[in-house]
């Protein structure tokens, strides 16, 4: 089955979405991530969507779900690299993703996660 790879970098899991998202793929990713957070005791999750040309309500919901479930499992999620056109569209759609932390790119996202890990 088609899967989006999850990379482990120390205490952080990195997901780079490079392919066109379809619904099943999004659901699988959500399940896989929950498994991996638990298995690796990860403290942070970075989701890089810079290659995504659209985010609809289904993918938006997946992102919100990942963020909530990782928080419950004591890992912080940072969504990085959202394209301007995608951001404008999501806002118009009515999906503001409150509570989901964001950063411009993977570097900044990583820094955000390390900084908040240090504070704790």
């Amino acid at each position: 089955m088609e899967r989006i790879p999850i990379l482990r970098m120390g205490e952080i899991l990195l997901v780079t979405v490079q392919v066109e998202m379809h619904d099943q793929l999004a659901l699988t990713l959500q399940e896989d991530l929950a498994e991996r957070i638990s298995a690796t005791a990860a403290r942070g999750v970075l989701i890089d969507i810079s290659a995504l040309e659209i985010v609809d309500s289904f993918i938006g919901r997946m992102i919100a779900n990942i963020s909530s479930l990782s928080r419950i499992m004591d890992a912080q999620t940072v969504l990085v690299g959202m394209q301007p056109a995608v951001a404008i569209t999501l806002v118009e759609l009515g999906l503001n993703l409150p509570g989901v932390a964001t950063a411009l790119n993977v570097d900044r996202g990583m820094k955000l996660l390390l900084d908040s890990a240090q504070r704790q």
Binding site: M82, Q83, V91, N96, L104, N105, R108, G109
Partner: peptide, 9 residues
């Protein structure tokens, strides 16, 4: 403002 936040700025 919301879109800018979604982009991570």
């Amino acid at each position: 403002v919301t879109a800018i936040r979604l982009m991570g700025a």
